[in-house]
Design a protein around this nucleic acid. Structure first.
Length: 418
RNA sequence: GUGAGUGUAGCUCAGCUGGUUAGAGCAUCUGACUGUGGCUCAGAGGGUCGAGGGUUCAAAUCCCUUCACUCACCCCA
């Protein structure tokens, strides 16, 4: 084999596409009910768009971006996630001038240069949404409830919703200092990654899974104790709204997002059935990114869900698809030409029509009709041409009906029996 | 970037401690008294056994190297 897909990329073939459409259609329907409109964004941006938003020290920026120079020597990057591009567009097109909240959704491929693994690809597809201009936690609750509605409608079970608050510009620095103070004396007890994290992003030490680090960080100051009044109230109200909407969830103070732009609310939806890549959807609030991108102070909240993680969770996803409404089985050149014409004419009338293009035995044509699940067939040969009559056979009921070789009549018979 | 596992037909795999033209099931195509399918039966096509090197009279099988894939760590959707 000469060529193969690049590592971590995959072809999605027709049988599976049906499931993708299923997920996409449900999402679109529910987004519509919640007032979200589709937005389509480029799959690459100036590299700075991602560095400035996701964070210089984040894993994504440090080692996972597909970055290259274009022919004009500009550094461009294939988007590793959707929100940064979205905020760029939001500011570029002054979308904040529309009545708040402005709500958008998108679906499309993202790119991260990681070692592929089960449910993890280098090109992966996300469905995401962003709601802008309102900092009331009702919006947080609404978006989490919407995710729940989508996933429930898709039919997923065994999902856990976790939420937390990671503070804001005002209170996070205090917490950061408190953490560093706590760790500073015993840094040698942590793994090399954590020692690096100490300077880069001490919050990530809380998420380390190395046993000695888990042990050594016991008694570290809890995030929630350091939230400012505003952040604390935000979280409390979010919880009460989620309760009102009956969205089951737990608070996980150690939930750490890999993106630096989050403020206040962060959340993650995980599945028990995905092995080690358990995150199905995740998101959070970002109340200062618009301003950092040159727009007016505007709060925002968004999420993304991973298609490759949702699709394997869908049960009995393999559905048998029907074949063409009609298949012509011509015998001989003359008949084949007539069938060729009729096929085109009936297609123009809105039917799915196929014909056997190879001159093989009727038996083999019938076999093929069966295999492609043709709903009806018409055998057309010398006799049929001479008499201007054909027999239309229903392949499931075996019922046969005589008909004139005439578009209107064929169309009517097939439409009636569909 | 680190660690482990696996590479034989389109797919799933068999091939024991090395021994003649490498197998099965499924799938594909064809045929079964010349124009009617799904079942059955018969047959056909399809593999440089991931690649390169080595040991041997002899390698899919043993050794080395390499590549690819998979899973896990890190991190994440």
């Amino acid at each position: 084999m000469k060529y193969k897909t690049l590592k971590g990329l995959q072809d999605i073939l027709p049988p599976e596409i049906a499931v993708w459409h299923h997920v996409e259609n449900i999402s679109r329907d529910i987004f519509k009910n919640y007032g979200y409109q589709e937005i389509r964004l480029p799959i690459m941006e100036a590299t700075d768009v991602f560095i400035r938003s996701i964070g210089e020290t984040s894993d994504i920026v440090e080692k996972e971006m597909y970055t290259f120079q274009d022919k004009g020597s500009r550094s461009v990057t294939l988007r590793p996630e959707g929100t940064a591009s979205f905020v760029r567009a939001y500011v570029e097109h002054h979308l904040y001038n529309n009545p708040a909240p402005q709500k958008f959704y998108y679906m499309g491929p993202m790119f991260r240069y990681e070692r592929p693994q089960a449910f993890r690809y280098r090109q992966f597809y996300q469905i995401g949404a962003e709601a802008m201009g309102i900092d009331d936690p009702k919006l947080d609750a609404e978006i989490i409830s919407m995710i729940s509605a989508i996933l429930k409608s898709i039919g997923l079970e065994g999902l856990n919703f976790e939420i937390t608050s990671i503070g804001c510009k005002k209170c996070r620095p205090d917490y950061r200092t408190a953490l560093k103070n706590f760790f500073s004396g015993k840094l040698d007890r942590f793994c090399s990654d954590c020692q690096r994290r100490y300077d880069a992003n001490p919050l990530r030490i809380l998420d380390c899974k190395v046993p000695s680090c888990i042990e050594s960080r016991k008694g570290s100051p809890p995030v929630l104790d350091y939230l400012c009044g505003e952040c604390k109230e935000h979280l409390d109200r979010l919880r009460s709204y989620l309760g009102l909407l009956k969205v089951q969830h737990t608070v996980n103070p150690n939930l750490v997002r890999g993106l630096d732009y989050y403020t206040k609310t962060a959340f993650e939806v995980s599945s028990e059935n995905l092995g080690s890549q358990s995150a199905v959807a995740a998101g959070g609030r970002y109340d200062s990114m618009v301003e950092e991108f040159g727009g007016p102070p505007t709060s925002g909240i968004g999420f993304a869900m991973g298609m490759e993680r949702i699709i394997p969770l869908i049960k009995n996803s393999a559905g048998g698809t029907d074949g063409p409404d009609l298949l012509f089985c011509p015998m001989g050149d003359k008949a084949s030409e007539k069938a060729f014409l009729l096929t085109e004419q009936l297609r123009a009338k809105g039917l799915w029509v196929e014909m056997n293009l190879e001159d093989t035995s009727l038996r083999s044509q019938m076999r093929k009709a069966n295999r492609i699940r043709a709903q009806h067939i018409i055998v057309i040969g010398e006799d049929e041409l001479k008499n201007n009559k054909v027999v239309l056979k229903n392949m499931t009921s075996k019922e046969e009906i005589a008909a004139a070789i005439e578009i209107k009549e064929l169309l009517k018979i097939i439409s009636d029996r569909k």
